[in-house]
Amino acid sequence: MINIPYFKQAIKSNIIFLAIFTIILCAFLTVISTVFTPTSMVGIESAVNGTFASNIITGTTFVEFLSNSFYALMAILFPMLYSIIVGNNLIAAKVDDGSMANYLSTPVSRRDIVISSALYLILSLLLMWIIASIVGITVANITQPDSLDVDTFLMLNVGVFLFHFAISSICFVASCIFNNSKHSLIIGGGIPLFFFIVNLLIKVSEDLEILKYITLTTLFNTSNILAGSDYIGDFIILAVIGIVLYVIGIEVFTKKCLPL
């Protein structure tokens, strides 16, 4: 099912991106944890009142504050950029520059190569969020003792991981379908970034609420997770989208004609 030497190579080739984006994510998490105090929030809220930031930066409890800042912006954008870059690198870039021919000249099947690649992307995102969870809890313990609702925080991370599982499946399926990086990035990068921008627009203006039906970010509903209700269905949908698109990507790459 997976080819160990190829999987190890996928790790070696992409670990630098994983490290960079995980560090960025953890840095933001740390900074945000440090600036939060219930009283400072009142100050920030009055300072940004009337600007578009007032719709983003709100919240009185620590986890609420995180969900409206970190989980509304950085947690969406940075892992998304990671998936776009790495998703393209894993398949389409190798077909585009011809280096895939070297691997396909060995008895390792296309299926094993594409499954190893998919697994790397999924597991690396999982690792990213495990690290972020550990860092988040550790930093909160130091800067905000006893103020973090750990269960809710972990559930936010489960949700955001599933969201990125679905996003990465879009990047991956595009990488498997297209034979050059350009088209793979236009589709595999364009769709996720479109979701991100629509998500921002919705936050800026309530009139644009209707747009929530065209972006996957809707399925990562932080207020539902905070309220502890109605989020399981969203999680399942995200997981199903991810599984379906990864399977399609694997099947397409296994069966298509390659211009190598």
Binding site: S13, K94, G98, S99, A101, N102, S105, P107, L260
Partner: peptide, 14 residues
């Protein structure tokens, strides 16, 4: 491919 060796026309090594 178990018993075949192939040298591509355009070499594209990683």
């Amino acid at each position: 491919k178990e018993f075949t060796g192939y040298l591509a026309g355009e070499i594209a090594l990683p």
